[in-house]
Nucleic acid binder design. Sequence first.
DNA 1: TATAGTGTAATAGTTAAATAGAACACTATG
DNA 2: CATAGTGTTCTATTTAACTATTACACTATA
Lengths: 124, 124
Amino acid sequence: MKFDDKVPIYYQIKNQLYHEMITGELEPGDKLPAVRQLAVDMTVNVNTIQRALGEMITEGVIESQRGKGNFVTMDHERITQLKEELITEQLERVYQQLHALDLSDEDIIASLEHFIKQRGEQHV
Amino acid sequence: MKFDDKVPIYYQIKNQLYHEMITGELEPGDKLPAVRQLAVDMTVNVNTIQRALGEMITEGVIESQRGKGNFVTMDHERITQLKEELITEQLERVYQQLHALDLSDEDIIASLEHFIKQRGEQHV
DNA sequence: TATAGTGTAATAGTTAAATAGAACACTATG
DNA sequence: CATAGTGTTCTATTTAACTATTACACTATA
């Protein structure tokens, strides 16, 4: 897996797993791959996996069962809530950044529309 | 200055200075505060400032004159180009992230519009 | 009950980022 | 020409993130 060396790997792993939970790749109750397997898949050390999972357990998104495995929480609500949080987080950040670059609310929306439109044309 | 401990400080300093150049707070030819002064202002070590400036010099955005100071490039074009780069970078990132969260192009635009609208209501 | 598969924990070593502090090089100016 | 204000460089130290390795604890099952 390719990581952005500007932010901690364990943090990017969390995001990766969040995404899988939100897109439904991982569903409530699903068992995650074994930590050692995840480590191999992501070409990363077990401890780094453990650190990411540890935080997610604290957040109540993953439940750990010693000897069995790690499981996605059965709490559907927690996951939709998570999705909302992640989306808002992204929007908040891009808004702040573009605002700091002197773009008005309208500019921000227009530039995003323009970006997506252009992108669509490129990817035909 | 408050920093996000998830990304290197020198990197955040670069962004801060970029923003000032783009909003016009810093204009082409302007002299930047002395490195030691910047260090005080940003409550950061001189070496960290130096690292940020060093990269910006390499990028041709800042010109250094030993004994005199650091100056914003006179090349207006370089700055507008920089602005475009930063905006696109932000849009690219938020697009990727929200797309990974299973939002369609339309969803992404709609959620941004919704976010900005809501935000406007909150900040009355 | 032995064994394989799991999570958990601990220790030690490496690296990048940041700090602290000092010294050096150049410029402007009283 | 001395001095203050600049940028530049270097060394040493600390800290967080990551890696490597080993050991331990629990579960399922042949």
